Simulated assay, not measured.
Amino acid sequence: MKRNADDSNPVMIGQTDWYAQAGKNPFIEDGFTPELMMRIEQAAANKSSAYKRYWINKNMVLTSLATILLIGALTFPMGIWKNTGPIHSSSVQSQGAGILPSSSPATNDKAIEPPTSPVEFEISGKKYYMPLPMNRDKSKAYAVETTAGILWSPPPPMVDYKKPKYTHPTEPFTLYLSSKDQTELSASSATRIYTLPLYAGGASTYQYLSGFFGAGDYALLFTYTKTIGSGIMENGRFFILNVKKAATGESLVPKELTSFDWELLEYKSIIAVDKEHDLIVFSYLEYPVDKTYQDKTVLYDMETLSIQTPASTIGFRDINGQSLTMEYEMNGELYKADILTKGGPGWLDEDWAFLSEERQNELYQEFYSQTP
């Protein structure tokens, strides 16, 4: 796998402070060898990764029911979508030099690499694996299928100050494309499709990739920002990337969808994609004021992001948690779309807004007890 920035700087601040504390030659004492140090680090990394993975998965489900829209591996509080996004000053752009969008083959650096631990994905019945250094956050490793191949993104190296609010990436998030026949997702044999900016609005604010979905020729990307010291996810944004065009070498920048009010999805909603007609389908139930409900559906063309003819979802209230597809009607004709995610506490009870706090808590507990 391509050598990462943290490989060239083994003495880092934070999680590797003990290197510096050990002195310039930490192997001078008898019995303390490089092999022993590597085994100690590998065991510690495995333990930390297992705990973190469980904590993240459990709390994502916990928070999604009340005020969050589920977005695959990571979710956002809906309020962050209200901001129009980061402002890139000239000083920040100069700091981000060299991370412009690109659709070029990744280089193959055969320098010595740290111990790796793969992340496995099962896509369309086939298993893929992504080799990663032991110190990477596996919860931020993503891979989806598109018509052009497997689109994937490895977690970048992070500086860990032992304080969650001060941890941040040292390299930007990058999207790669691999052949569907290639089971190893490695940058050395993949095409780099796009690299997000590292900074977002200032030298202390960083851009994060929250996850993405495959949608035929396209990918739906979700991002957010964090500022050192705050630890709060802000500036949630939604982008569309034409992966098929990018795979041909065309330099593309993901298009942002800014015309949709994301707060409409807070109460009870579905995000789906009609791959046959290249449409994004947003279906939602308006938040009730007087117990009067109305289903609404908005369609967006994935290439132009323009709004299509008004549509309506068929059987919105009857779509259960196991449904993978949904039907919608447009101009008197029925169409099908693949459900990507569902959000809002309305899926627990449509009268959520009128339930007592005690009853809301009971529903939460019932849901938690059924969640792995």
Rank of each mutant, 00 (worst) to 15 (best):
1 M>N: 12
5 A>R: 04
12 M>N: 12
12 M>Q: 08
13 I>F: 11
16 T>M: 04
19 Y>Q: 07
20 A>W: 11
20 A>N: 11
21 Q>P: 07
22 A>Q: 06
30 D>K: 15
31 G>R: 08
38 M>T: 14
40 I>L: 08
43 A>W: 06
45 A>F: 05
47 K>F: 09
53 R>E: 14
54 Y>H: 13
54 Y>P: 07
57 N>S: 15
60 M>F: 15
61 V>L: 11
72 G>C: 15
72 G>E: 15
73 A>R: 15
75 T>Q: 15
82 K>M: 13
89 S>E: 10
89 S>Y: 11
100 L>S: 15
105 P>I: 09
109 D>V: 15
115 P>C: 09
116 T>Q: 14
120 E>K: 13
120 E>Q: 13
122 E>Y: 10
123 I>T: 02
125 G>H: 04
127 K>Q: 13
129 Y>E: 13
144 V>L: 09
149 G>A: 00
158 M>A: 15
158 M>Y: 12
163 K>L: 07
164 P>C: 09
167 T>Y: 03
170 T>Y: 06
172 P>S: 01
174 T>N: 04
174 T>Y: 00
179 S>P: 09
181 D>W: 02
181 D>E: 01
184 E>N: 10
185 L>H: 05
186 S>V: 01
191 T>R: 15
197 P>D: 01
201 G>A: 03
201 G>W: 08
203 A>F: 11
204 S>Y: 12
208 Y>L: 04
215 A>I: 05
215 A>H: 06
216 G>N: 05
216 G>I: 04
218 Y>W: 05
218 Y>S: 00
220 L>N: 02
223 T>L: 05
224 Y>T: 07
234 E>C: 06
241 L>W: 01
246 A>F: 09
253 V>K: 13
254 P>N: 01
258 T>Y: 02
258 T>G: 10
262 W>G: 03
266 E>T: 07
267 Y>M: 05
268 K>T: 08
269 S>A: 04
274 D>N: 02
275 K>D: 07
282 F>R: 09
283 S>L: 03
286 E>G: 15
289 V>G: 10
293 Y>N: 08
295 D>H: 11
297 T>G: 02
298 V>L: 06
307 I>T: 12
309 T>N: 12
312 S>Q: 10
321 G>K: 15
327 E>F: 14
329 E>G: 04
340 L>K: 07
341 T>N: 09
355 L>N: 03
356 S>A: 08
358 E>N: 11
366 E>L: 13
367 F>Y: 14
